[in-house]
Amino acid sequence: MMDKTRQVGEESKAGARGSTPGGSGDGPLIVSSSPHLLTADNIPKIMHSVVAALLPACAVSIYFFGIRALLLIAVSVAACIATERAIQRFLGKPSTIADGSAIITGILLALTLPPSFPLLGAVLGSVFAIAIGKHIFGGLGYNIFNPALLGRAFLQAAYPVLITTWVEPFTRGFDVDAIAAATPLALMKFEGQMTPHLDLLFGNISGSLGETSAVAIIIGGLYLRYKGYINWKLPLGYLGSMAFFGGIFWLMNPSRYPDPLFHVLAGGAMLGAWFMVTDMVTSPTTPKGQWIFAIAAGAIAVIIRLFGGLPEGVMYSILLLNSVVPLINRWTRPKVFGEVSS
Protein backbone atom coordinates (compact mmCIF):
# COMPACT_ATOMS: atom_id res chain seq x y z
CA MET A 1 0.00 0.00 0.00
CA MET A 2 2.61 2.46 1.13
CA ASP A 3 4.83 1.63 -1.79
CA LYS A 4 2.13 2.41 -4.24
CA THR A 5 1.60 5.84 -2.72
CA ARG A 6 5.30 6.47 -2.85
CA GLN A 7 5.45 5.44 -6.46
CA VAL A 8 2.57 7.68 -7.39
CA GLY A 9 4.26 10.56 -5.65
CA GLU A 10 7.47 9.99 -7.51
CA GLU A 11 5.81 9.73 -10.84
CA SER A 12 3.76 12.88 -10.52
CA LYS A 13 6.89 14.67 -9.40
CA ALA A 14 8.78 13.51 -12.44
CA GLY A 15 5.86 14.50 -14.60
CA ALA A 16 5.67 17.97 -13.14
CA ARG A 17 9.35 18.62 -13.66
CA GLY A 18 9.42 17.42 -17.24
CA SER A 19 12.52 15.32 -17.87
CA THR A 20 14.56 15.57 -14.69
CA PRO A 21 14.38 12.15 -13.07
CA GLY A 22 15.39 12.12 -9.46
CA GLY A 23 17.38 15.32 -9.65
CA SER A 24 16.46 16.91 -6.32
CA GLY A 25 17.26 16.15 -2.70
CA ASP A 26 13.84 16.37 -1.10
CA GLY A 27 12.15 12.99 -0.87
CA PRO A 28 8.65 12.27 -2.14
CA LEU A 29 5.77 13.04 0.16
CA ILE A 30 4.16 9.84 1.41
CA VAL A 31 0.47 10.14 2.12
CA SER A 32 -1.48 7.12 3.27
CA SER A 33 -4.44 6.57 5.51
CA SER A 34 -4.10 5.19 9.03
CA PRO A 35 -3.55 2.73 10.66
CA HIS A 36 0.10 2.79 9.73
CA LEU A 37 1.86 -0.49 9.84
CA LEU A 38 5.56 -0.70 9.09
CA THR A 39 6.51 -3.65 6.95
CA ALA A 40 9.79 -4.85 5.57
CA ASP A 41 8.20 -5.75 2.23
CA ASN A 42 8.65 -3.60 -0.81
CA ILE A 43 8.30 -4.05 -4.54
CA PRO A 44 11.83 -5.37 -5.22
CA LYS A 45 11.61 -7.85 -2.37
CA ILE A 46 8.26 -9.24 -3.50
CA MET A 47 9.30 -9.36 -7.12
CA HIS A 48 12.54 -11.17 -6.40
CA SER A 49 10.63 -13.74 -4.35
CA VAL A 50 8.37 -14.32 -7.34
CA VAL A 51 11.45 -14.82 -9.51
CA ALA A 52 12.73 -17.37 -7.00
CA ALA A 53 9.34 -19.08 -7.00
CA LEU A 54 9.50 -19.40 -10.77
CA LEU A 55 12.92 -21.10 -10.69
CA PRO A 56 11.61 -24.69 -10.18
CA ALA A 57 9.34 -24.33 -13.22
CA CYS A 58 12.26 -22.93 -15.25
CA ALA A 59 14.55 -25.75 -14.11
CA VAL A 60 12.00 -28.41 -15.08
CA SER A 61 11.45 -26.84 -18.49
CA ILE A 62 15.21 -26.80 -19.10
CA TYR A 63 15.40 -30.43 -17.98
CA PHE A 64 12.71 -31.46 -20.47
CA PHE A 65 13.44 -29.17 -23.38
CA GLY A 66 17.16 -28.51 -22.98
CA ILE A 67 19.17 -25.51 -24.10
CA ARG A 68 16.32 -24.20 -26.22
CA ALA A 69 14.22 -23.55 -23.11
CA LEU A 70 17.11 -21.82 -21.37
CA LEU A 71 17.69 -19.61 -24.41
CA LEU A 72 14.01 -18.67 -24.65
CA ILE A 73 13.90 -17.66 -21.00
CA ALA A 74 17.17 -15.73 -21.20
CA VAL A 75 16.20 -13.92 -24.39
CA SER A 76 12.76 -12.97 -23.07
CA VAL A 77 14.13 -11.63 -19.79
CA ALA A 78 16.86 -9.67 -21.57
CA ALA A 79 14.39 -8.23 -24.06
CA CYS A 80 11.96 -7.21 -21.29
CA ILE A 81 14.68 -5.46 -19.32
CA ALA A 82 16.04 -3.71 -22.41
CA THR A 83 12.55 -2.54 -23.43
CA GLU A 84 11.82 -1.21 -19.95
CA ARG A 85 15.12 0.66 -19.86
CA ALA A 86 14.65 2.10 -23.33
CA ILE A 87 11.11 3.31 -22.64
CA GLN A 88 11.97 4.85 -19.29
CA ARG A 89 15.00 6.60 -20.74
CA PHE A 90 12.88 7.87 -23.64
CA LEU A 91 10.16 9.18 -21.32
CA GLY A 92 12.66 10.60 -18.84
CA LYS A 93 11.25 8.51 -15.99
CA PRO A 94 13.35 6.97 -13.22
CA SER A 95 14.54 3.49 -14.00
CA THR A 96 12.64 0.66 -12.31
CA ILE A 97 14.63 -2.24 -13.70
CA ALA A 98 15.97 -3.11 -10.26
CA ASP A 99 12.49 -3.88 -8.93
CA GLY A 100 12.49 -7.11 -10.92
CA SER A 101 9.02 -6.81 -12.43
CA ALA A 102 10.42 -6.88 -15.96
CA ILE A 103 12.33 -10.06 -15.11
CA ILE A 104 9.09 -11.73 -14.01
CA THR A 105 7.30 -10.64 -17.15
CA GLY A 106 10.15 -12.10 -19.21
CA ILE A 107 10.16 -15.43 -17.39
CA LEU A 108 6.37 -15.75 -17.43
CA LEU A 109 6.21 -14.93 -21.12
CA ALA A 110 8.90 -17.49 -21.92
CA LEU A 111 7.07 -20.11 -19.84
CA THR A 112 3.96 -19.67 -22.00
CA LEU A 113 5.83 -20.26 -25.27
CA PRO A 114 6.39 -23.57 -27.02
CA PRO A 115 10.02 -24.77 -26.90
CA SER A 116 10.44 -24.53 -30.66
CA PHE A 117 9.34 -20.88 -30.76
CA PRO A 118 11.81 -18.62 -32.63
CA LEU A 119 13.92 -16.40 -30.38
CA LEU A 120 13.14 -13.28 -32.40
CA GLY A 121 9.46 -13.97 -31.83
CA ALA A 122 10.11 -14.10 -28.10
CA VAL A 123 11.80 -10.70 -28.38
CA LEU A 124 8.74 -9.32 -30.16
CA GLY A 125 6.46 -10.68 -27.47
CA SER A 126 8.63 -9.19 -24.74
CA VAL A 127 8.69 -5.77 -26.37
CA PHE A 128 4.91 -5.87 -26.78
CA ALA A 129 4.39 -7.05 -23.20
CA ILE A 130 6.48 -4.28 -21.68
CA ALA A 131 5.71 -1.44 -24.07
CA ILE A 132 2.01 -2.00 -24.78
CA GLY A 133 1.15 -4.16 -21.79
CA LYS A 134 2.76 -1.98 -19.16
CA HIS A 135 4.18 1.39 -20.12
CA ILE A 136 1.39 2.60 -22.39
CA PHE A 137 -0.79 2.49 -19.29
CA GLY A 138 1.75 4.32 -17.14
CA GLY A 139 4.06 1.60 -15.85
CA LEU A 140 3.94 -0.93 -13.05
CA GLY A 141 0.80 -0.53 -10.96
CA TYR A 142 -1.22 1.11 -13.70
CA ASN A 143 -1.43 -1.71 -16.21
CA ILE A 144 -4.88 -3.19 -16.79
CA PHE A 145 -3.72 -6.49 -18.23
CA ASN A 146 -1.08 -8.92 -17.11
CA PRO A 147 1.84 -7.86 -19.36
CA ALA A 148 3.19 -11.37 -19.95
CA LEU A 149 -0.21 -12.68 -20.98
CA LEU A 150 -0.80 -9.69 -23.24
CA GLY A 151 2.54 -10.38 -24.94
CA ARG A 152 1.54 -14.00 -25.33
CA ALA A 153 -1.86 -13.05 -26.74
CA PHE A 154 -0.17 -10.82 -29.30
CA LEU A 155 2.17 -13.62 -30.32
CA GLN A 156 -0.79 -15.98 -30.59
CA ALA A 157 -2.48 -13.56 -32.97
CA ALA A 158 0.71 -12.70 -34.86
CA TYR A 159 2.11 -16.22 -35.26
CA PRO A 160 -0.88 -18.58 -34.96
CA VAL A 161 1.04 -21.48 -36.50
CA LEU A 162 4.38 -21.13 -34.73
CA ILE A 163 2.79 -20.81 -31.31
CA THR A 164 0.85 -24.03 -31.69
CA THR A 165 3.77 -26.11 -32.94
CA TRP A 166 4.78 -28.36 -30.08
CA VAL A 167 7.61 -30.81 -29.65
CA GLU A 168 8.03 -33.96 -27.58
CA PRO A 169 9.95 -33.54 -24.33
CA PHE A 170 13.62 -34.51 -24.43
CA THR A 171 13.94 -33.09 -27.91
CA ARG A 172 17.38 -31.58 -27.52
CA GLY A 173 19.40 -29.25 -29.67
CA PHE A 174 18.42 -26.55 -32.09
CA ASP A 175 17.04 -28.61 -34.93
CA VAL A 176 13.65 -29.28 -33.41
CA ASP A 177 11.49 -28.54 -36.43
CA ALA A 178 11.10 -32.15 -37.47
CA ILE A 179 9.42 -33.69 -34.45
CA ALA A 180 5.95 -32.34 -33.79
CA ALA A 181 3.60 -33.47 -31.05
CA ALA A 182 0.19 -32.51 -29.72
CA THR A 183 -0.39 -31.18 -26.20
CA PRO A 184 -2.57 -33.15 -23.78
CA LEU A 185 -5.34 -30.59 -24.22
CA ALA A 186 -5.21 -30.82 -28.01
CA LEU A 187 -5.20 -34.62 -27.79
CA MET A 188 -8.25 -34.44 -25.55
CA LYS A 189 -10.07 -31.93 -27.73
CA PHE A 190 -9.32 -33.07 -31.24
CA GLU A 191 -8.63 -36.78 -30.82
CA GLY A 192 -10.51 -37.70 -27.66
CA GLN A 193 -7.33 -39.13 -26.17
CA MET A 194 -6.39 -38.72 -22.50
CA THR A 195 -2.97 -38.27 -20.98
CA PRO A 196 -2.15 -40.08 -17.69
CA HIS A 197 -2.36 -37.81 -14.65
CA LEU A 198 1.10 -38.74 -13.44
CA ASP A 199 2.66 -37.48 -16.67
CA LEU A 200 0.75 -34.22 -16.25
CA LEU A 201 1.96 -33.94 -12.68
CA PHE A 202 5.64 -34.42 -13.40
CA GLY A 203 5.76 -32.92 -16.84
CA ASN A 204 6.71 -35.64 -19.29
CA ILE A 205 4.39 -34.13 -21.89
CA SER A 206 4.57 -31.71 -24.76
CA GLY A 207 3.43 -28.15 -24.27
CA SER A 208 4.72 -24.70 -23.45
CA LEU A 209 7.78 -24.45 -21.24
CA GLY A 210 5.75 -23.83 -18.11
CA GLU A 211 2.86 -26.11 -18.99
CA THR A 212 4.68 -29.35 -18.45
CA SER A 213 5.19 -30.00 -14.75
CA ALA A 214 2.42 -29.12 -12.34
CA VAL A 215 4.57 -30.08 -9.34
CA ALA A 216 7.28 -27.54 -10.10
CA ILE A 217 4.74 -24.74 -10.28
CA ILE A 218 2.95 -25.83 -7.11
CA ILE A 219 6.28 -25.75 -5.25
CA GLY A 220 6.83 -22.15 -6.40
CA GLY A 221 3.25 -21.20 -5.57
CA LEU A 222 3.46 -22.68 -2.08
CA TYR A 223 6.69 -20.77 -1.48
CA LEU A 224 4.93 -17.52 -2.39
CA ARG A 225 2.03 -18.43 -0.14
CA TYR A 226 4.50 -19.16 2.68
CA LYS A 227 6.05 -15.73 2.17
CA GLY A 228 2.56 -14.23 2.27
CA TYR A 229 2.71 -12.56 -1.14
CA ILE A 230 -0.31 -14.35 -2.51
CA ASN A 231 -3.46 -15.49 -0.75
CA TRP A 232 -5.41 -18.72 -1.06
CA LYS A 233 -8.47 -17.18 -2.64
CA LEU A 234 -7.15 -16.47 -6.10
CA PRO A 235 -5.30 -19.68 -7.02
CA LEU A 236 -7.68 -22.01 -5.19
CA GLY A 237 -10.74 -20.17 -6.48
CA TYR A 238 -9.41 -20.45 -10.01
CA LEU A 239 -8.39 -24.10 -9.85
CA GLY A 240 -11.47 -25.02 -7.81
CA SER A 241 -13.73 -23.30 -10.29
CA MET A 242 -12.07 -25.14 -13.17
CA ALA A 243 -12.44 -28.44 -11.34
CA PHE A 244 -16.05 -27.69 -10.43
CA PHE A 245 -17.27 -26.61 -13.84
CA GLY A 246 -15.13 -29.21 -15.58
CA GLY A 247 -16.52 -31.78 -13.15
CA ILE A 248 -20.13 -30.95 -14.02
CA PHE A 249 -19.51 -31.81 -17.66
CA TRP A 250 -17.47 -34.86 -16.68
CA LEU A 251 -20.36 -36.19 -14.60
CA MET A 252 -22.75 -35.56 -17.47
CA ASN A 253 -20.64 -37.46 -19.99
CA PRO A 254 -17.41 -39.02 -18.66
CA SER A 255 -16.51 -40.54 -22.02
CA ARG A 256 -16.54 -37.22 -23.80
CA TYR A 257 -15.31 -34.69 -21.25
CA PRO A 258 -12.12 -34.92 -19.17
CA ASP A 259 -12.22 -35.31 -15.40
CA PRO A 260 -11.68 -32.36 -13.02
CA LEU A 261 -8.14 -33.38 -12.12
CA PHE A 262 -7.15 -33.34 -15.77
CA HIS A 263 -8.47 -29.77 -16.11
CA VAL A 264 -6.42 -28.62 -13.18
CA LEU A 265 -3.19 -30.38 -14.14
CA ALA A 266 -3.17 -29.95 -17.92
CA GLY A 267 -2.14 -26.94 -19.94
CA GLY A 268 -1.47 -23.58 -18.39
CA ALA A 269 -3.94 -23.93 -15.51
CA MET A 270 -1.28 -24.26 -12.78
CA LEU A 271 0.97 -21.52 -14.13
CA GLY A 272 -2.01 -19.24 -14.63
CA ALA A 273 -3.51 -19.96 -11.22
CA TRP A 274 -0.35 -19.40 -9.19
CA PHE A 275 1.46 -16.70 -11.12
CA MET A 276 -0.98 -14.83 -13.36
CA VAL A 277 -4.34 -14.83 -11.58
CA THR A 278 -2.45 -13.71 -8.47
CA ASP A 279 -0.79 -10.74 -10.19
CA MET A 280 -1.14 -8.00 -7.58
CA VAL A 281 -1.71 -5.26 -10.11
CA THR A 282 -4.31 -6.90 -12.31
CA SER A 283 -6.44 -8.77 -9.78
CA PRO A 284 -9.14 -7.33 -7.49
CA THR A 285 -8.16 -6.00 -4.06
CA THR A 286 -11.33 -6.88 -2.13
CA PRO A 287 -11.79 -10.43 -0.74
CA LYS A 288 -15.21 -10.83 -2.32
CA GLY A 289 -13.92 -9.45 -5.58
CA GLN A 290 -11.06 -11.92 -5.59
CA TRP A 291 -13.50 -14.83 -5.34
CA ILE A 292 -15.61 -13.43 -8.17
CA PHE A 293 -12.52 -12.87 -10.30
CA ALA A 294 -11.06 -16.34 -9.73
CA ILE A 295 -14.29 -18.30 -10.11
CA ALA A 296 -15.44 -16.44 -13.23
CA ALA A 297 -12.02 -16.83 -14.86
CA GLY A 298 -11.99 -20.56 -14.09
CA ALA A 299 -15.46 -21.02 -15.58
CA ILE A 300 -14.48 -19.17 -18.75
CA ALA A 301 -11.31 -21.24 -19.08
CA VAL A 302 -13.34 -24.46 -18.91
CA ILE A 303 -15.88 -23.17 -21.42
CA ILE A 304 -13.14 -22.24 -23.89
CA ARG A 305 -11.41 -25.59 -23.38
CA LEU A 306 -14.53 -27.66 -23.94
CA PHE A 307 -16.51 -25.63 -26.44
CA GLY A 308 -14.23 -22.91 -27.87
CA GLY A 309 -12.14 -23.04 -30.99
CA LEU A 310 -8.87 -23.26 -29.09
CA PRO A 311 -7.66 -26.19 -27.00
CA GLU A 312 -6.50 -23.93 -24.14
CA GLY A 313 -8.45 -21.11 -22.53
CA VAL A 314 -6.38 -20.06 -19.52
CA MET A 315 -4.78 -17.06 -21.23
CA TYR A 316 -7.99 -15.52 -22.54
CA SER A 317 -9.92 -16.29 -19.36
CA ILE A 318 -7.46 -14.28 -17.26
CA LEU A 319 -7.14 -11.43 -19.77
CA LEU A 320 -10.92 -11.20 -20.05
CA LEU A 321 -11.35 -10.93 -16.30
CA ASN A 322 -8.42 -8.49 -16.05
CA SER A 323 -10.47 -6.07 -18.10
CA VAL A 324 -13.32 -5.99 -15.57
CA VAL A 325 -11.20 -5.77 -12.42
CA PRO A 326 -11.92 -2.04 -11.84
CA LEU A 327 -15.62 -2.83 -12.08
CA ILE A 328 -15.33 -5.75 -9.63
CA ASN A 329 -13.37 -3.57 -7.21
CA ARG A 330 -16.03 -0.89 -7.27
CA TRP A 331 -18.83 -3.34 -7.00
CA THR A 332 -17.43 -5.20 -3.99
CA ARG A 333 -16.07 -2.24 -2.05
CA PRO A 334 -16.29 -3.16 1.65
CA LYS A 335 -18.40 -1.01 3.93
CA VAL A 336 -16.69 1.59 6.05
CA PHE A 337 -16.99 0.63 9.73
CA GLY A 338 -20.13 2.22 11.13
CA GLU A 339 -21.53 3.09 7.71
CA VAL A 340 -25.29 3.22 7.54
CA SER A 341 -26.85 2.04 4.32
CA SER A 342 -29.00 4.76 2.88
Binding site: L124, I132, I136, F154, A157, A158, P160
Partner: peptide, 22 residues
Amino acid sequence: YTPWVVMILPAGAFLSLGLLIA
Protein backbone atom coordinates in the same frame (compact mmCIF):
# COMPACT_ATOMS: atom_id res chain seq x y z
CA TYR B 1 10.45 -12.42 -41.98
CA THR B 2 7.40 -14.27 -40.73
CA PRO B 3 4.48 -11.84 -41.20
CA TRP B 4 2.46 -10.94 -38.14
CA VAL B 5 -0.92 -12.29 -39.16
CA VAL B 6 -2.62 -10.11 -36.56
CA MET B 7 -1.76 -6.91 -38.43
CA ILE B 8 -4.09 -7.64 -41.34
CA LEU B 9 -6.85 -8.72 -38.96
CA PRO B 10 -9.18 -6.26 -37.17
CA ALA B 11 -7.05 -6.34 -34.01
CA GLY B 12 -4.09 -5.06 -36.01
CA ALA B 13 -6.21 -2.16 -37.26
CA PHE B 14 -7.08 -1.05 -33.73
CA LEU B 15 -3.50 -1.49 -32.57
CA SER B 16 -1.93 0.49 -35.42
CA LEU B 17 -4.53 3.26 -35.36
CA GLY B 18 -4.25 3.61 -31.59
CA LEU B 19 -0.47 3.73 -31.67
CA LEU B 20 -0.49 6.16 -34.61
CA ILE B 21 -2.82 8.55 -32.75
CA ALA B 22 -0.73 8.17 -29.59
